[in-house]
């Protein structure tokens, strides 16, 4: 049968920063072709196709709780593969090679991690699962 793609609504303007991305305008509708765990989704909007940040989209048919995993408060050990400096209040700054606990794998690619008593969002593409036990 035909492939039915999920439709999402754009919630904020997005300006592309590389050639495989597309611009988004608030209120546009896009169809999602692929959802990458790192938070970049491949979508089509009219005749354009390209990657866009998932956090700029909301599902057309109600909340997407079903596809978003529940938080895991015990945490899953990961190691940072790249440093990142927080740019927004709810983010966490970490150096490369630090061990953290991932407590919520959000679909937008900004996972909630815990490091000691600090908690904040961190780019999932800078995290690698670790074999170390808690």
């Amino acid at each position: 049968g035909p492939i039915i793609l999920d439709t999402y609504r754009v919630i904020a303007d997005f300006e592309k920063t590389s050639k495989h991305e597309i611009n988004l305008h608030t209120g546009d509708f896009v169809e999602i072709v692929e959802k990458n765990e790192n938070g970049w989704w491949f979508c089509q909007c009219e005749s354009k196709r390209g990657w866009v940040p998932a956090s700029y989209l909301e599902p057309l048919d109600g909340p997407e709780e079903a596809e978003e995993p529940e938080p895991d408060y015990e945490g899953e050990m990961h190691v940072t593969t790249q440093a990142y400096e927080a740019e927004q209040e709810d983010e966490i700054s970490l150096e490369v090679g630090q061990t953290v606990e991932v407590i919520h794998k959000l679909l937008d690619g900004w996972w909630v991690v815990r490091k000691g008593e600090q908690t904040g969002h961190y780019p999932s593409m800078f995290l690698q699962k670790s074999d170390k036990k808690n």
Partner: peptide, 22 residues
């Protein structure tokens, strides 16, 4: 065809523009 996704973290909208938690 689908190219590889960008290698930089996806940007986030400013807090006031974000989706409300479900």
């Amino acid at each position: 065809s689908i190219k590889n996704p960008p290698q930089n973290p996806p940007p986030r909208p400013p807090p006031e523009m974000r989706r409300k938690p479900a």
